[in-house]
Simulated scan of single mutants.
Amino acid sequence: MTAGRNSAVGEQAATKSKKAAKATKSSAKPESRLAMVRRARRINRELAEVYPYAHPELDFENPFQLLVATVLSAQTTDLRVNQTTPALFARFPTPEELAAANPEEVEELIRPTGFFRAKTKSITGLAAAIRDDFGGEVPGRLEDLVKLPGVGRKTAFVVLGNAFGVPGLTVDTHFQRLVRRWKWTEQEDPEKIEAEIAAIFPKSEWTMLSHRVIFHGRRICHARKPACGACPIAHLCPAYGEGETDPDKAKKLLKYEMGGMPGQRLKPPAGYPGRPAPPLGAAG
């Protein structure tokens, strides 16, 4: 991304954050269900412009690698998982080989991701189940995936949406935090959150909505100190003001450790089934 475009994105966010301050003060009436749905869909559209090629930030080349990487990502960062999985997959490239692996060797390989003993049990167990129950192929159905060791609905939807093209909502901690801040739901339980958000958006949007929300949560709308003054959707956010509203101070809170900046078209990871991203400035 050019410096000029970075500046333009920042200025646009600052302008919108000022509008948000005014909107927050004037919004005394309770929001109707219809108004909330319209606002939610507008947030999704605007996030699509800010993150036009949001994608899973785990590196993978096939469904098996994505499944294992997603299980390993619990309680750690995608960056740390991406630093760890190349050696793991080079040593154990198939479910059959991972299922037969010495647990101590697997533990040593995945130690940097934390909770390595429990994760070793999960990934060797799911590899054995894939070998024994699914002919060595990762199943493409939710009801089959959630039966695998260490695999819940969140992990299953990551795999379904990004390896099989089956729409699903990835209700991780970022997603939960943002949809509650945006007043799309008041639920705390992930499955209830999933159901309420699914009712707002068409099914075809579920996977990309998840990526956009998670991108935004990682880069701008942080848990402890959201960068409200640098947020491009501040004018649509009922929680505006929970974080830093000064544009210059807010810019310092932005995080781009995975390489994706607001407005930047990102190259998809290996194995991602979507179409290549068009060059910057090209028509969608």
Rank of each mutant, 00 (worst) to 15 (best):
A35F: 01
M36T: 13
R38E: 11
R38H: 09
A40H: 08
R41K: 12
R41I: 07
R42K: 15
R42A: 05
E46A: 05
L47I: 02
A48H: 09
E49P: 05
E49W: 10
V50L: 09
Y53R: 15
A54D: 14
A54G: 10
A54N: 07
P56S: 15
E57P: 06
L58K: 03
D59Y: 01
E61I: 13
N62P: 02
N62M: 05
P63S: 05
F64S: 00
Q65N: 01
L67M: 07
A69T: 10
A74Y: 03
Q75G: 03
Q75A: 07
Q75D: 00
T77P: 04
D78T: 12
L79Q: 14
L79W: 02
N82G: 02
T84V: 09
T85Y: 01
P86L: 09
P86I: 10
L88H: 01
F89H: 08
A90W: 00
R91Y: 09
F92E: 03
T94C: 01
T94E: 06
T94G: 00
P95G: 08
A101P: 07
A101E: 07
P103Y: 11
P103V: 12
E105V: 15
E105L: 14
E107W: 13
E107F: 13
E107N: 14
R111P: 02
R111E: 03
R111S: 00
R111C: 02
T113C: 11
T113M: 09
F115E: 06
F116C: 13
R117Q: 11
T120A: 10
I123C: 04
T124F: 05
T124Y: 06
A127M: 08
I130V: 14
I130L: 04
R131P: 11
R131S: 14
D132W: 13
G135S: 00
G135D: 02
